[in-house]
Design a protein around this nucleic acid. Sequence first.
DNA 1: ACAAAAGTGTTGCTGTTACACCCATGG
DNA 2: CCATGGGTGTAACAGCAACACTTTTGT
Lengths: 219, 219
Amino acid sequence: MEKSYYNVLETLLLIYAADEGKLKIYLKKKNEEPYKGYWTLPSAPLDSETTLEENALEIYKSMTNLEETTMFQSKAFSNLDRDPNGRIIGISFVAITDKGLTDMKQNSEDKAWFEVDELPKLGFDHENIIETVSAEVKKKVISNYDDMLLAFFPSDFTLPELQNFYENVLEKPIDRRNFHKKFVNQDLVIDTGFKTSKGSGRPGTLYRFNQDKMKGKRI
Amino acid sequence: MEKSYYNVLETLLLIYAADEGKLKIYLKKKNEEPYKGYWTLPSAPLDSETTLEENALEIYKSMTNLEETTMFQSKAFSNLDRDPNGRIIGISFVAITDKGLTDMKQNSEDKAWFEVDELPKLGFDHENIIETVSAEVKKKVISNYDDMLLAFFPSDFTLPELQNFYENVLEKPIDRRNFHKKFVNQDLVIDTGFKTSKGSGRPGTLYRFNQDKMKGKRI
DNA sequence: ACAAAAGTGTTGCTGTTACACCCATGG
DNA sequence: CCATGGGTGTAACAGCAACACTTTTGT
């Protein structure tokens, strides 16, 4: 192979959501070789007249039909053997979305949500990328670094829902009563006045995050 | 300009150290056009047979004559007008070093330390890059996220030294006595048994970080 | 009325904050 | 012996951890 100062780049997008208490990622099924039938991260090659951010947002729109999201840059992956077709450098972005929205909710033939700890067969080095970036995202969720916990709950939620997600990410159980009081006593959440009743048991109060108190707050 | 899927990349290295209580960065003076006489970040073009990490380490070695450092990837900068010579994508890395070591201590004609809040005239978009990345580094120092505070003090220090640096990064004063006890009472530091005496006043106890307690510790 | 899920109360501990005071060195 | 800077003490308070109990729903 000829050594050169020109490189091919791709933007990789990791779309995350909190769903049923689990951290999930939205993947795409590949229907051409290489890795035909494998799942992969949505991606796009970067041309010389587009910024990485623009490129990532385009991928987001095409995958979700949504315009807005919390998006930020993550790591670059530059191993020489990432792609069997030749050297390509991948720059990863993280987008956090509200799974409740739009047609993303239903999995389709070629787009689906997966728990980050139960990934399907993945093409290229995407399993490695997902594990690396997910570890970073989880770490931020746990302490609300970069307001990451806030980003996962843009709309109403019950405290048990929040706790379920938080416990799964933390991989440790937390006392239900202490968790509840932490958020209520410190005014980190606002009571919307509504309740949810799904199944048996007392209905949960619907809260939303108190943005002023949560922004920058260390959990 | 012709649209293409080939891009030129450069690795940019931000070498930081805690010195005299200040967060400092090591820069290089440019002696050819463009930006001749301006200061810039050390950088290297990326060829098609090198990883970003290898490239960053090469820059580090050539700037410091040291082999080892705490290094991690930071953001990628992909604005189209970053460089007057044409589109080039910059991938930034952060290295943290012990300024006391080697010949780095003395500033030379073409390499020097600068406080991140008192930067010289910088070429390209490097001022923007330094500000962006420095904000990220400071934020991590403040909470010891990714063990960032630990990384800045690999060898012995006095608590007043540590506090001086921490206060400058935080941009708020902290009670001297509480700061002291926080670290001592929680066994975050280990007494080396040595003292420093510089100038008047009672000599300070030399501590080093207790790695076991500090790793992962949120300050 | 019973199970299931959500919400409230209490107590002790740990760490933070806001203070005043004592100790070791150089001039 | 006094200025300078470093180290120790203490009391009030906030947040966390570990507990038992009560309330509201569905069946």
